[in-house]
Amino acid sequence: MSLTREFSKGIWRENAVFRLLLGLCPALAVTTSAVNGLGMGFATTFVLVCSNIVVASLRRLIPARVRIPSFIVVIASFVTVVQLGMEAYFYDLHKALGIFIPLIVVNCLILGRAEAFASRNPLLPSVIDGVGMGFGFTLALFVLGAVRELFGAGTLLGVAVFGAGYQPLILMILPPGAFIAMGLLLAAMNRAERLRR
């Protein structure tokens, strides 16, 4: 078990959004722009790494029968920290992501990593696992947000790409566009995966 492997698995082989199909609610809901995707990705990564650290450190103290409530308390606390911190210091991002930040609590990616990895592994691998998984999640949200913003608004990170003549495909920013973009990206990734083998 090498640490590089623990890190890189989250980016492609076990990418939360594109391969495990975990955490789709935030992935679909907030990715109306690349910046929103990045913001949600970083917030989730922060919570994931922190909860992995605490869960891995306390794994011998937490009895198996109350592990799920314990994990949820830990995760919910860090989510609240993110929410308060974001409102205090990144107000615009807070307004854009709004109600989706508290929903990080129920992101199955985070509980999944606590249960499947951090509660069974020492501190260092758990941190690496959290960083890698979070990075892969952020990357997926960024790509999804970038594709939707590009076609739905004609911009990328707020910069106009296609020029004034482009008629934005508003559908891509609306909820159905999330599913369409997600489906097309999944198809492309499955194809790439098959070619790689």
């Binding site: 937490i62 009895p63 109350v66 308390v73 830990v74 920290v81």
Partner: peptide, 23 residues
Amino acid sequence: LALVLTLIAAGAGLILSLVEKAT
């Protein structure tokens, strides 16, 4: 079981009250 859960919740409460105060 009750003791562990209580301790975890108390720790979480302490941290949250500090963060809330700071922000």
